[in-house]
């Protein structure tokens, strides 16, 4: 367990008093903030986990954060200028890795890159090939999504959102349905992409506590309070101050294992 030096600067994403009501109250007064983490000499992105049980309303919160639905009350402000979130500000990687099945992997990436507001330097072809090489997808560029494994499709989904210029990416249950080796690879991938840019912010929405917390720098526990309607943020966790952040082997440490076990009792 190593406590590292860091600073938290301005808010990159600020959720204030978000409630959502359909037939009943799903979310109640959800408030949390994701701040820009600064580490000297390191390009440090942010990985944040929203942990909660299945059916608690995580997916609703996920869609609100992505600007896909409007909350009944409350606001979601995003980026350095803290503007209200709109669809397109935040990338989304769904649990079932939605891609355009009628397009090849190359075309799936191309269509995303063409719509980027901040396209990386170089030709579209060169950028796609560079990312494909970086994330072991070169041999799959001419294939269709149906020809790829779940893990490969997930990689394409993440890169598709990154190439679209989204600094904020929401991932819905990214470890679901993957074997142990693939889970480790996905974790490495998320850390790698998150740290490619200072503003990159990945929000993992998951019920898988151990793996989510192992790569996060902060986490929010979403749960219901006894006898009350609607899920709330029950606890905010600063994993950096606890010495659990940015350590690839943290998942094997007894203290971390015990900590995760204690979280299970809270959700």
């Amino acid at each position: 367990m190593t406590v590292r030096q860091y600073q938290k600067k301005e808010a990159l994403l600020k959720v204030s008093n978000v409630s959502l009501r359909y037939d009943c109250l799903v979310l109640r007064d959800i408030s949390f903030e994701i701040d820009d983490i600064i580490r000297e000499g390191v390009t440090q992105g942010q990985i944040v986990s929203l942990i909660g049980r299945s059916g608690i309303g995580k997916t609703c919160l996920f869609r609100i954060l992505a600007g896909l639905i409007k909350p009944t009350t409350g606001t979601v402000l995003i980026d350095h200028d803290q503007h209200p979130v709109r669809a397109g500000d935040v990338g989304v990687v769904y649990q079932n890795y939605i891609l355009f099945n009628h397009r090849t992997i190359y075309d799936n990436l191309r269509i995303s890159l063409e719509r980027s507001q901040t396209p990386p330097g170089g030709s579209i072809d060169a950028v796609i090939k560079e990312y494909a090489a970086e994330f072991s997808l070169t041999e799959h560029l001419k294939k269709y999504p149906q020809q790829l494994s779940g893990g490969q499709r997930q990689r394409v989904s993440i890169i598709q959102q990154v190439l679209n210029g989204n600094r904020f990416v929401l991932l819905d249950e990214p470890f679901s349905g993957l074997d142990a080796i693939m889970v480790d690879k996905v974790k490495q991938l998320l850390v790698k992409i998150a740290n490619m840019h200072e503003d990159n912010t990945f929000v993992i929405v998951s019920h898988n506590i151990d793996h989510s917390l192992a790569i996060s720098d902060s986490a929010f526990i979403i749960a219901k309070e006894e006898g009350k309607e609607g899920a709330v943020v029950k606890e905010s966790i600063n994993l950096i101050d606890m010495g659990f952040a940015w350590d690839p082997d943290v998942i094997r440490q007894q203290e971390f294992i015990d900590f995760c076990a204690s979280i299970k009792d809270k959700i």
Binding site: R63, L68, G88, V90, Y94, I98, L99, R115
Partner: peptide, 8 residues
């Protein structure tokens, strides 16, 4: 929704 996240 994915299309909207890709700014379509």
């Amino acid at each position: 929704e994915m299309c909207r996240t890709l700014r379509m």
